[in-house]
Design a protein around this nucleic acid. Structure first.
Lengths: 259, 259
DNA sequence: CAGTGGTCTAGACCACTCA
DNA sequence: GAGTGGTCTAGACCACTGT
């Protein structure tokens, strides 16, 4: 007996997902295009709606599509990444424009930047932060929480930790608004020029809180950057933990190779 | 009439997920611990099994747990990250040990490193690579595909592109094995010392192929690093696109701030 | 209002693991 | 073989979006 040739070993949900993925890759389903409704897909493939739904879940986990309640499932358009360069700490850029690198990059993309300092408090920092600041565990620091928006869409946030003996009673310790030239101009005022940086980068799925705060669709990872600023004596004077939406942010470093 | 106080507005699946997440955070469910079976959870909360299953899916998407067919669902242990430093291109380190930075880092973690060059071919590179190599679109390059393992577990892979006029008929263009001191010693032999690097970093969910190749559990993003090597005339001579499992790899750069 | 995705139920069978 | 997760069915009701 001959085998029936039109047998498909793949699971129905996989098969539907594969078909859709192929159409997306081939451009038959362009970015922004609407997928068939789950009920239509189920009818088309002769499955239960849940099976079609599972296929959508697969594509969602791959970050390819974005389901919108009551509207439909859409091919995700890949917006241009914000390219955060190592030059974002450059003194020259800071001086020329008076703008933070974040604002420059967002403006370059034709969007409107906004930053918001949500809180300035005194706290005992997490261990990982105390270690990087080279302070005793239990020492107080200033904690500043900043959120970054493009067209009022949150794209990242950062929590900055500053030892109290560095911040003193300067604006860094008390004011939400820091004035022209961003936070690093204020550090320089206090005798802490930023000469070197250390950035430790990792990627993971967001916590539910981060997911809510960043309004990130499911299937979007976050980039976490643990940033340490070093002065000309190579001493750390500030640590910031950034959390960025992975689909909207990228990092771009150019640096010399150490010997 | 008084409201019944034990009403819980949350959806059943969310409620189960929240309970489990809390137990994981509190350490009641330690890393490696087995969660109750889906059937047990369903019975416990008086829901259908699918509802308990949905709760597991939520935690899985957060990267908190790992379901194993026929065994159970387990709290994921966070293995130590591989810390890939900017010093991984250092000439001194290369010379002292004769080992690649990858091997050093894996060994440091008590695991056994292995690298594997899967192919060496001549090809027309993708546009994004040609741009970074500053060659004409359509020019041929050498393409080398490398896989990196720790204890035979794949942790990352990289595809290296070298212009044919750089590689010539050196081992770079022909041999899978490159000998002592890693690939950058060979570039130096050819008159291309690595002086500066550019690294463009992004995070995303893996494609199905990457997911299969890296044997990454669901809910684990990848870190993509587009690396460009520059010689002392600041001319690019090599581009490598790395894809790393986000749960096993981290990047660690220290660099001077440009003026 | 009709159509969409979001969630849930109460079953079923299969593939895998482990004793 | 008992228990587990993986997948599927055929319904149901809800919340949201559009017209």
């Amino acid at each position: 007996m001959e085998q029936v040739p039109d047998q498909d070993k793949r699971l129905p949900s996989r098969r539907i997902a594969d078909d859709l993925r192929e159409q997306i890759k081939q451009g038959e389903l362009a970015p922004g295009a609407k997928l068939p409704s789950e009920r239509a897909m189920a009818a088309r493939y002769g499955t239960a709606r849940n099976t079609a739904r599972e296929a959508v879940a697969i594509l969602q986990a791959e970050g390819l599509v974005d389901a919108q309640h009551g509207r439909g499932v859409f091919v995700r358009s890949r917006p241009p990444l914000m390219r955060l360069g190592s030059n974002r700490y450059s003194r020259r850029l800071r001086g020329e424009t008076g703008l933070s690198p974040f604002r420059i990059e967002v403006t370059k993309q034709g969007r409107t930047p906004r930053t918001e300092c949500r809180s300035v408090t005194r706290e005992v920092p997490p261990k990982e932060v105390a270690e990087r600041l080279e302070i005793e565990h239990g020492d107080l620091v200033i904690r500043r929480e900043n959120w970054y928006f493009a067209d009022d869409e949150p794209v990242q946030f950062g929590v900055t930790y500053i030892p109290v003996d560095v911040a003193g009673d300067s604006p860094l310790a008390t004011d939400a608004k820091l004035g022209r030239g961003s936070i690093y101009a204020r550090f320089e005022d206090l005798g802490y020029p930023i000469m070197r940086i250390r950035e430790e980068i990792s990627a993971r799925m967001p916590t539910p809180e981060e997911s809510a705060g960043l309004i990130a669709p499911p299937g979007v990872p976050v980039i976490e950057v643990m940033h340490t600023s070093l002065d000309n004596a190579r001493r750390p004077f500030e640590v910031t933990k950034f959390v960025m939406r992975g689909d909207l942010n990228g990092l771009d470093y150019e640096m010399p190779v150490e010997d």
